[in-house]
């Protein structure tokens, strides 16, 4: 697609996103918030994927941030806005420490370890009853941030998305892009051309995890509670992954389109087919991936027809 056309598109969507509260009701705003949250998670997942590392730990870091934020408010008396930043820092630092240990792992082993770490976070939160509230969870006594004002909550979610978009664009436009792509394409030649693989992976892991924690903080402040089942839900891993893959990976636009598609479809189907909409949802995922193996990006980028699969 022509570069100018895509700029116009981006500008159009940007203006639409910012001005939505001026003309949309509370229901579209709520749906938009849900979609933007998953969209941002999908973008962060894709950012790490650009190095070839497949994380299954989104829910773990999201949940960690969510609990950091809510416990920051309840146990340390943080103001709401600070707790969201604290969530980002907490998940980021956790990711840094974990990353030192696990970023030497590759392929499936990395995926499994991130998955297992997410489960470990969940069990710890689950079992430290007195501090975290245990399986029943905790609520923020003073309620939802901004007194539940729909417009402000929308803008808060938009900030979360904007941070993810900005980071992703930074990854795409800077040196990081070449480093991560080189690692993904051929690690050995990347190493021999002087790329410090571990450092770049650590950077990508910490940045994406911090954003995931940030989004977790936004989530708890928007609903005023956290329970282990809610914030560590496997949905926060699987849906962003599905969105990124359906939209098309290794880019910012792919996850954006994928999240729009799945987010809108799921809300629409729910209203049209109250009983059984999830069956259709599953079938749509299957069909899209079978007929658009490169994701929705394929619709706009004709040159993406080349497959990278096995040609046996």
């Amino acid at each position: 697609m022509n570069r100018n056309v895509s700029r116009i598109f981006a500008a159009f969507f940007g203006v639409l996103a910012i001005t939505l509260p001026l003309f949309a009701g509370d229901y579209p705003l709520q749906v938009a918030r849900n979609i933007m949250l998953y969209m941002a998670l999908a973008i962060t997942w894709d950012m790490l994927l650009r190095s070839g590392q497949i994380s299954f730990g989104i829910a773990g870091l999201f949940g960690l941030g969510a609990y950091a934020a809510i416990l920051g408010v309840i146990r340390a008396g943080m103001p709401a806005w600070l707790s969201i930043l604290f969530a980002a820092v907490f998940s980021g630092v956790a990711a840094f420490l974990i990353g030192l240990l696990i970023l030497r792992l590759r392929a499936m082993y990395f995926s499994i370890v991130t998955l297992a770490l997410g489960e470990i976070f969940r069990i710890i939160v689950h079992n430290l009853h007195d501090f975290t509230g245990g399986p029943e969870g905790v609520v923020i006594q003073q309620g939802v941030i901004f007194g539940g004002n729909a417009n402000k909550l929308y803008w808060l979610a938009l900030v979360g998305l904007a941070v993810a978009l900005a980071a992703s664009t930074w990854f795409e436009k800077s040196k990081i892009h070449f480093a991560l792509t080189a690692i993904r394409d051929n690690e050995i030649s990347a190493k021999s051309s002087g790329i410090d693989i571990f450092r770049w992976l650590l950077l990508a892991f910490v940045v994406t995890s911090a954003i995931q924690g940030f989004l977790g903080g936004i989530f708890v402040q928007s609903y005023g509670f956290a329970t282990p089942d809610t914030v560590f839900s496997a949905d926060f891993t699987l849906l962003p992954l599905a969105m990124a893959l359906l939209g098309g990976v290794y880019s910012t636009t792919g996850p954006v389109f994928g999240a729009l598609l799945l987010g809108l479809v799921s809300e629409w189907l729910k209203l049209k087919i109250p009983y059984g909409h999830l069956v259709v949802y599953g079938i749509i995922i299957i069909i899209v991936i079978l007929f658009m193996p490169q994701g929705l990006k394929q619709l706009v980028r004709r040159d993406a027809g080349k497959t990278e699969g096995r040609n046996a």
């Binding site: 509370d26 229901y27 749906v31 849900n34 509670f225 809300e267 729910k270 999830l278």
Partner: peptide
Amino acid sequence: IVVDDEGKADKAAAAVEKLATV
């Protein structure tokens, strides 16, 4: 008028908004 909450907090919030405003 029945709306599914899918057992999820965010979908449940959207269900309330839909029923209340639409």
